[in-house]
Design a protein around this nucleic acid. Structure first.
Length: 820
RNA sequence: GCCGAAGUGGCGGAAUCGGUAGACGCGAGAGACUUAAAAUCUCUUGACCGCAAGGUUGUGUGGGUUCGAGUCCCACCUUCGGCACCA
């Protein structure tokens, strides 16, 4: 081992401890003691679920990326808020409790301790003073408070919702517990069951959840997914009168231009039941049986049976308002009760599903759109075209007809429909925030009084599945309710979806110890909205939608003054196993960050993960490449310590000038790449610089202490431990000083310029040589062309030919076009 | 099926206001040092032809625009992610 070996096992723990004692990154505490100048900048990492298996290399990637930004912006003089917390409620801890009997609070506490230790070891510069955990009563107290605000405004309501029900275990199952349509525990077939549940009326904000996306800097693909989830569609509702009755069936359609081609109408089983339509005795039995069967179907079966197009004729007739045609009314489960109006007009000639249904049930097909050549021979033509068989609308285009037809019939009105449904938040689970509702002896819900918050999660609970919410088994919970609200009162036994916890945590962070409010106005206004949010791609639909909903709601209640919570957002990609597949225990391809830190150090792990490739891409782990990064850091260490120990003057030479230029170019490049999240190219630039510097040292010269210091500062956000160690070695300042309190180094504009620029010379599009041009003659068109033309390798292709065209794009390319 | 993202050496990837493709790293090969190994250092490394100078070819496929295309346009193929009987 050489004398300049960097021993991470000694150095990293040393600085970790010193930083902790100094409270170096505890922005909030620093503020209280006078604060410091600079623009506030809120950097947010999607808080993690503290799983029992500890920190994953994927966590390391996103935490490190954000940490680099935090450190870089601090050096730029910004006042950075970089908080940390835990999404601590959730199913895994509860399942573990069912298996082992260990209370989820205990396993969660242990898991958080492990995560905290690992994160600190990584050198993440979190502001620990505002650490939160959603399972802490002082946190979920405010989760419950938000629920009560929603309740007061009528946006939290009770309704009928579908749950996965296991008839074997007599219990509700989460979607993850349903494996191929069966209970993962006992293997029974899971059915859908209706239960009274609590909902949040997110649909109240559906339009603003669309328009608000214009305000934010998010990846377009993410916005797209949000839009698809909300699923706004413009169309029309056609009212079909029920023959011999004053009842009407509303059918939503996006293709009202095809209304003359309707040959039947189909209702969803739910809709038919809810409308309580009277069928003739001969059909009543088969219709009832069909509906019964449809409700017994599981989600899985509905999907498997997709192609079937089962259905039953009700015997009832409806009247098409556009032409008075009498059409049969069917009930079929290919029509969804929860979308549109729950009923559709069947236009088999122009809708594939209707076509399949018509084929199966022997229904008429009437073509009303002429697609021209495109429709030739097609049995079912679903594109737009010219209307035919549509009375006075014949000859119109589909687009024209979609305007004209609703304008002409009272029974047809333009209508917009959405895919988004209200948010079902009830969970028949233990490890979550209790829903702050109590029921009087008549069963009417009442909000828990605010003075009774936090409405504590009881601890005397049996976790074993019994078919009921675990909270029912708590004597304390029931006694508490009766004591506070009166005898015969009972609490709501369900807990809230953990997405509720995570929909507002970024608000609590800014004032996490506040006892009087969710957060003070002052702190909210100072930091929010979040400037930059880093989140995994798995959370881009629901978590974001729910958080945006909460933000808009709290704004309307006067607590917030902004519309969107996350102004800029980016996603980290997934780190795959060395085999290129998703890491999992069963595949045995999991990389443990602790082991990497043990062997190579946190700085190596950080830089390796940042160097793997673009942040948002999925990348496989390469065990050997980690060593390459480690070698790079060892070279850095050796070169810097060489400067510390050097005696005598530096000799001026070409290679020294080269190194100095490279230094300034590197500072510029890294300063550009870090805020652009291009960590991989920033590190490549640092490596190039090290190569150039090393060349200079080998040529008997090198860099001065002051120059070396610039480099160490440039390295500091990426390799915080090594940079701190080398900073102290170079300057000899006391331990209470830190490289992480220094300003970002400024580069010298002139030195950062390249001394000569190599420009390619093309003849007929093929590269035939390069010319070296100095920066001061870069715009000298004639001189550069002359120089290029005179080169032998170019002349060879020019002589004896006609020079048709000569092009010089300054600093880029010379291009000659020749002909015979 | 629909929506979205992406296809570049042996590997991870760089270069996208169109302008020298393959930066940086890994791996591989040759060499130096060493009793030997590790570590370190030097050189080579897209493919093909050539002793060399050099040439040809090359960014998923096929067309197109252009002096010039990884980058733009059209059509297609493959992979991954999301949604999925959404009327």
């Amino acid at each position: 081992m050489s004398k300049h070996w960097y021993d991470h096992q000694q150095i990293e723990p040393k600085w970790q401890q010193i930083w902790e004692e100094m409270k170096l990154f505890q922005q909030t505490e620093r503020q209280e003691t006078g604060g410091e100048a600079g623009d506030p900048l809120y950097l947010l990492f999607a808080f993690a679920y503290p799983s029992g298996s500890g920190l994953h290399v994927g966590h390391v990637e996103s935490k490190t990326a954000l940490d680099i930004l935090a450190r870089y912006y601090r050096m730029q003089g910004k006042k950075v808020f970089f908080p940390v917390g835990w999404d601590a409620f959730g199913l895994p801890a509860e399942n573990y409790a069912i298996k082992t009997g260990i209370h989820p609070a205990e396993t969660t506490r242990q898991a958080i301790d492990t995560f905290r230790r690992q994160v600190k070891r990584l050198g993440i510069s979190y502001d620990w003073a505002n650490e939160i955990a959603t399972s802490h009563p002082e946190y979920y107290r405010w989760t419950q408070w938000v629920f009560l605000q929603l309740y007061k405004q009528g946006l939290a309501y009770r309704g009928i919702g579908m749950v996965n029900w296991c008839p074997g275990c007599q219990t509700v199952l989460a979607n993850e517990q349903v494996v191929e349509g069966a209970c993962e525990r006992c293997g029974s077939k899971v059915i859908q069951k209706e239960m009274e549940q609590w909902f949040f009326k997110i649909t109240e904000y559906k339009d603003e959840l669309i328009s608000g996306l214009d305000q934010v800097d998010w990846p377009e693909a993410t916005k797209h997914q949000q839009l698809n989830w909300i699923g706004k569609k413009e169309g029309a509702v056609v009212k079909f009168n029920l023959a011999g009755s004053n009842q009407q069936i509303d059918c939503f359609t996006t293709r009202v231009d095809t209304v003359f081609g309707a040959t039947f109408v189909v209702m969803s089983p739910e809709k038919f039941r809810d409308m309580e339509l009277a069928t003739a005795p001969e059909q009543a039995e088969s219709v009832a049986a069909y509906i019964e069967k449809a409700f017994q179907k599981t989600e899985e079966e509905r999907q498997i049976g997709e192609k079937d197009k089962t259905g039953v004729d009700t015997g009832l007739k409806v009247i098409n308002p556009v032409n008075g045609a009498e059409l049969p009314l069917y009930v079929a489960d290919y029509v969804l009760g929860s979308y549109g109006t729950g009923a559709v007009m069947g236009v088999p000639a122009h809708d594939l599903r209707d076509f399949e249904f018509a084929k199966k049930h022997g229904l008429e097909v009437i073509q009303v759109i002429d697609g021209g050549a495109a429709a030739e021979g097609a049995e079912c033509f679903t594109d737009y075209g010219k209307l035919v068989n549509s009375g006075k609308f014949d000859g119109m285009s589909s687009e024209e007809a979609m305007e004209a037809i609703p304008a002409d019939f009272e029974e047809i009105t333009p209508e917009t429909t959405y895919r988004l449904r209200d948010w079902l938040i009830s969970r028949q689970r233990y490890w979550g925030a209790p829903i702050p509702i109590v029921y009087d002896p008549e069963g009417n819900p009442h909000p828990v009084k605010e003075e009774h918050l936090p409405w504590l999660l009881p601890t005397d609970v049996d976790f074993k599945p019994t078919g009921e919410s675990p909270l029912r088994s708590s004597k304390e919970f029931i006694e508490r309710t009766e004591r506070l609200y009166g005898s015969g009162w009972r609490p709501e036994f369900d807990t809230m979806d953990t997405f509720v916890d995570s929909s507002w945590y970024y608000l609590r962070y800014v004032d996490s110890r506040n006892q009087e409010a969710l957060a003070s106005q002052e702190q909210l206004e100072k930091w929010l909205p979040v400037d930059f949010y880093m989140i995994g791609p798995e959370h881009i639909v629901l978590h974001l939608l729910y958080s945006r909903f909460f933000t808009k709601f709290l704004r309307d209640q006067g607590y917030l003054k902004f519309d969107e919570p996350f102004m800029k957002m980016r996603h980290q990609g997934m780190i795959l196993g060395p085999d290129g597949r998703k890491m999992s225990k069963s595949k045995g391809n999991v990389i443990n960050p602790d082991e990497v830190i043990e062997k190579f150090g946190a700085d190596t792990l950080r830089i390796y993960e940042m160097f793997m490739g673009p942040l948002d891409a999925d990348k496989p782990w390469d065990v050997r490449a980690v060593i390459g990064v480690h070698k790079f850091l060892q070279r850095v260490n050796r070169l810097v310590l060489g400067v510390v120990e050097r005696v005598g003057e530096l000799s001026e030479s070409d290679s020294r000038e080269k190194a100095v230029r490279k230094l300034h170019q590197t500072i510029r490049k890294v300063g550009e790449d870090l805020p652009a999240l291009k960590f991989n190219t920033a590190i490549a630039a640092l490596m190039e610089f090290i190569n150039t510097w090393d060349d200079a040292v080998k040529a008997g010269t090198g860099l001065s202490k002051a120059e070396t210091l610039l480099f160490v500062k440039t390295l500091a956000p990426l390799a915080p431990y090594m940079a701190e160690e080398l900073y102290h070695a170079l300057t000899g300042v006391p331990e209470s000083d830190s490289v992480h309190l220094q300003g970002w180094p400024e580069y010298n504009e002139i030195l950062a310029q390249a001394d000569t620029i190599e420009i390619g010379v093309q003849v007929n599009g093929k590269l035939r040589g390069t010319v070296a041009v100095s920066p001061d003659m870069i715009d000298d068109q004639a001189a550069v062309l002359e120089q290029a033309k005179s080169m032998d390798s170019v002349q060879r292709y020019l002589s004896g030919k006609n020079l048709l065209k000569e092009i010089y794009v300054p600093g880029r390319i010379v291009s000659f076009v020749v002909g015979e």
